[in-house]
Simulated assay, not measured.
Amino acid sequence: MANITASMVKELREMTGAGMMECKKALAEAEGEMEKAVDVLRTRGLAAVAKKAGRATNEGTVMAIVNDACTTGAVVELNCETDFVGMNEKFKAYAEKIAKAALAAKPADVDALKAAVIDGETVEEIVTDCIHVMGENTQLARVAVVDAQAVSAYIHGGGKIGVLVTFNVEGIDPASDAFQKCGRDIAMQVAALNPVSATREDVPADVAAHEMEIYKAQAAESGKPEAIQEKMATGRLEKFFKESTLTEQAFVKNPDQSVSEYTDEVAKNLGGTIGIVDFKRFVLGEEA
């Protein structure tokens, strides 16, 4: 039996555009002969993918889902060539199936997700099938999976933005309609206003320092005493935190209260506590 190396599999993938596992099987069947392996894939209809493999994939959909218990969430981005296919319900069904595979397998990255199995087939095989059915080059761009005491998801614009928000909760069922309405509201907030982080404590130190440098330079131009300049810069940084961190932002549905005030109100009504921990926000076509 021929020794099938990783470089051989890579070469066949580049030649045909077929999936890694399919290439490996074809090489084994062809006893390591590249041309025969191509014929094997052509016979199976998989080498047809090669014609589409070089096309740009700038469209597609983002899919975000949670499990029944609302304690695990997955968001994936599946890219294709045209908006027409990206908005197609069949294409979205492929994305949802892949998201379900991610939810179950909890992969660390895209490669791990491609190897995940759902309903007897790998995600890589699902992507290949999508290419054949939809007739466009399709690429799995990225994935994120989160675990928490509570998770909520939101998809904006039919798949243009996908959001997962994680929470710490006490005395509240994360799967209850009342909590999930709140969770969805927060996820919608993330989609709409794109906060820098969940809380001011989570703002990267270099980001806060950079903002402070700008505000100090602005204050210096005022010509006022240094003590006043410092207060001006600190005040502007405080404004930055209130506008850029999720918990401190004005709640879109009621700008008279902050997001944290809204979650506190919901928590009180439900007889428990709600704390926003983090979020994932995927925008279609955005660099990972």
Rank of each mutant, 00 (worst) to 15 (best):
E11A: 14
K25Y: 09
L27C: 10
V40E: 06
R44N: 15
G45P: 06
A53S: 15
A53T: 11
T61R: 05
A69Q: 03
V76W: 00
N79K: 12
F84E: 01
F84N: 00
E96V: 08
E96A: 10
I98H: 06
K100W: 03
D109T: 12
V110Y: 04
A116P: 02
A116D: 01
V117H: 05
I118A: 11
D119Y: 10
T128P: 03
H132N: 15
L140T: 00
L140S: 04
V143R: 00
V143G: 02
A144G: 06
V146Q: 01
D147Q: 10
A148K: 06
Q149S: 14
G171Q: 07
S176P: 06
F179A: 07
I186Y: 01
A187T: 00
A187L: 00
V196R: 02
S197F: 10
A198F: 01
R200C: 14
P204S: 03
D206I: 14
H210G: 08
M212Y: 11
E213D: 13
A220C: 12
E221M: 13
K224H: 07
E226H: 09
A233T: 07
K239R: 14
E243H: 08
T245Y: 02
E248V: 06
A250I: 05
A250P: 13
N254R: 04
P255M: 05
D256P: 10
V259M: 03
L270M: 13
G272P: 10
F279L: 00
K280M: 13
